[in-house]
């Protein structure tokens, strides 16, 4: 499977990555070669194999339901670019 210019632009938009026009061809060919490799793996029949959810053969340890985190708003907001009335401010995102 090979990707064209449009695919690369769409993927870049989804990932919020800026790709300059002169980089598109190279990116397309690099991504295509990754997909080719995946396709190669896809030729192996894995229908009878349970997918690996995690490389470690362990299951999760769970925590008790208790509030352990105090309010540290001031500390966290001291590194935020913009805050007001306790809110983090970000560029307007209304649809």
């Amino acid at each position: 499977m090979s990707l064209d210019k449009k695919d690369v632009e769409a993927i870049a938009r989804l990932a919020r990555i800026e790709i300059k026009p002169e980089q598109i061809d190279e990116t397309a060919s690099q991504l295509s070669s990754i997909l080719e490799f995946v396709e190669q793996m896809n030729t192996i029949d894995t229908s009878a194999i349970e997918p690996v959810a995690h490389p470690l053969d362990l299951t999760a340890r769970l925590r008790e339901d208790a509030v352990t985190e105090p309010n540290q708003r001031e500390l966290f907001q001291s590194i935020a670019p913009a805050v007001e009335n306790g809110l983090y401010l970000v560029p307007k995102v209304i649809e």
């Binding site: 925590r63 208790a66 352990t68 985190e69």
Partner: peptide
């Protein structure tokens, strides 16, 4: 629950903004 699904911050409704939002 009293605390969040993946952190120990409180889940109570109506708290002051961002006072129940921990590093996680």
């Amino acid at each position: 629950t009293k605390s969040k699904i993946f952190s120990g911050a409180a889940t109570a409704y109506g708290a002051e903004p961002n006072t129940q939002a921990c590093a996680v």
